Amino acid sequence: MTNTETQVPLARFGISAVEIARVVAVFYARVRSHEVLGPVFAAHVADWPEHEDKIARFWRNAILREKSYSGNPMREHVSRPDVKAEHFPLWLGLFHDVLRTELPERTALQWGALADRIGEGFRTGIVAMRQPKDQPPKLF
């Protein structure tokens, strides 16, 4: 039987929902103790298990195509003035560290590449959406 016959979406790379949940949990444990990111997240996350579940659904949607996440993460980030473009390199660095410690090298690289694209999109979006309308665009 093929994936088409069973209606099972193809994964972009080999990872399980359990592995995604573990990476998300380890990542947010490190975020909470991070000197820069910790206070920013603490100001907006009241229920860590709920947040981690939501973000795990985001990643399962992005990687496994589960369609288990609905939301607008760009709007969530842009609407919080204390979330700044310069936080994304810190976020990505920490995320890559967790990927390298929790996953096989190839899987960590694949998920890391996806995270880089998404993170850069958020960073760029924040810069563009918060920029005064009468100024030339900032491209980096």
Rank of each mutant, 00 (worst) to 15 (best):
L139H: 10
D134I: 05
H34V: 02
G125S: 15
A108M: 07
E50C: 00
Y28F: 10
R100F: 06
A108D: 04
A108N: 03
H77S: 04
A85N: 09
R117Y: 10
H87E: 14
T107D: 12
Q135T: 14
V40M: 11
E102F: 05
V45E: 05
Y69E: 09
N61K: 00
A85I: 10
F41S: 02
L10K: 04
T4Y: 04
I118A: 01
P104L: 07
K133M: 07
P73H: 06
A62V: 07
N61P: 00
F13T: 03
K138W: 11
A62D: 04
Y28L: 03
L114M: 15
F27T: 07
L90R: 13
A17P: 14
E52Y: 01
E86Y: 11
R65M: 03
R60K: 14
N61V: 01
P89E: 15
A17N: 11
T2S: 12
H87W: 12
P49Q: 07
R75P: 01
A11N: 14
R100P: 02
Q110I: 03
L90S: 08
A25F: 05
F58Q: 02
H51L: 04
Q7G: 08
M74Q: 09
V127I: 15
N3I: 06
A25L: 13
A25G: 05
E66W: 01
R12D: 15
S68L: 03
Q110S: 06
A46S: 12
T107P: 00
E66S: 12
G38T: 07
V24H: 08
G112T: 06
V83Y: 05
P137N: 01
S79D: 08
P49A: 02
R32Q: 14
V31T: 02
H96T: 11
Y69A: 03
H34L: 00
N3K: 09
R12P: 03
L94Y: 11
A25M: 04
G38E: 03
P89Q: 13
E120M: 11
H44T: 07
D97G: 13
F13M: 04
T124V: 15
M1S: 05
G112S: 09
R57I: 00
L90P: 08
